[in-house]
């Protein structure tokens, strides 16, 4: 009896090992990582193989694809001409749009990107310096490691260590909509929930043409993707994949015609 139990245990463990085998490795940008993980889950539910998602940064992701460690890389920037020349292709799956938000009572309607940088690095500390109502500026930012924060840092500049930290776009929304002196940044999904005023940046409204605080999020493959990599890419760009992307607060690259 005992022997049989032991045997069953070994078989079960071995089966577990086989199940854990990974079909596809995805590595790269930590900004893409959260959405890539959700995509990987949805892909597995839709019958795809298991996708293991790792961070490491855009450049590490490109490197991983080049030396064959990962089938798919994730980047939150454009590929450089050098990288493209080495036989890689990028496929943009989503846009990450950051909206700079203030309390609806704030009289300001917009800032230049340079002003925005000065506000968030802590060198401008009073709304009067920006032509607003006098009062200290309350910065609200995301936590270190978050994709939005990383995007903000690369598109605008460093964030002062004095900034209030909230760990989701939703929490930033709550902090800003309650405080007439606050300024923060959120993704479009949080902005669309309302009770916030989005500032124009360099005269452009968020989500509109020419708006600056946008990053393409892309998957990187060999020039002609094949096998598992091609299948995952197809899923990411399919209606189901794009639905997952918009649920994560990103702007999908397909299916916007429905909204127009």
């Amino acid at each position: 009896m005992r022997k049989w139990l032991l045997f069953a245990l070994v078989v079960w463990l071995a089966a577990g090992c086989r199940q854990a085998a990974v079909g596809l490795q995805l590595a790269g940008s930590t900004s893409v990582q959260p959405v890539a993980e959700v995509l990987a889950e949805a892909y597995a539910r839709a019958g795809g193989s298991r996708v293991s998602v790792q961070g490491g940064g855009s450049t590490a992701g490109v490197q991983a694809v080049l030396n064959g460690v990962a089938g798919v890389g994730a980047v939150s920037r454009r590929l450089t001409p050098g990288e493209r020349a080495r036989g890689l292709a990028e496929h943009t799956i989503a846009y990450d749009v950051l909206a700079v938000v203030v309390h609806p009572d704030n009289p300001l309607t917009g800032l230049s990107r340079r002003q925005l940088r000065a506000v968030f690095d802590g060198s401008v500390t009073d709304w009067a310096q920006l032509g607003g109502r006098p009062g200290s500026i309350h910065l609200v930012s995301r936590e270190a490691g978050s994709g939005s924060r990383e995007a903000f840092r690369s598109l605008v500049g460093p964030v002062s260590p004095h900034a209030i930290i909230q760990s989701s776009s939703g929490a930033i929304r709550v902090a800003v909509m309650d405080d007439p002196r606050a300024i923060g940044y959120v993704n479009l999904a949080a902005l669309q929930l309302g009770r916030l005023k989005a500032l124009r940046v360099d005269g452009k409204a968020p989500g509109g043409p020419g708006y600056g605080l946008v990053r393409p999020l892309s998957l990187v493959t060999r020039a002609t993707p094949a096998g598992e990599a091609a299948a995952f890419l197809r899923f990411a760009l399919s209606p189901a994949g794009q639905q997952v992307i918009s649920e994560e607060g990103l702007v999908p690259v397909r299916g916007q015609s429905k909204q127009n």
Partner: peptide, 9 residues
């Protein structure tokens, strides 16, 4: 810990 564990490597 709670805030940053999500993506810390």
């Amino acid at each position: 810990i709670a805030m940053e564990m999500g993506y810390a490597v």
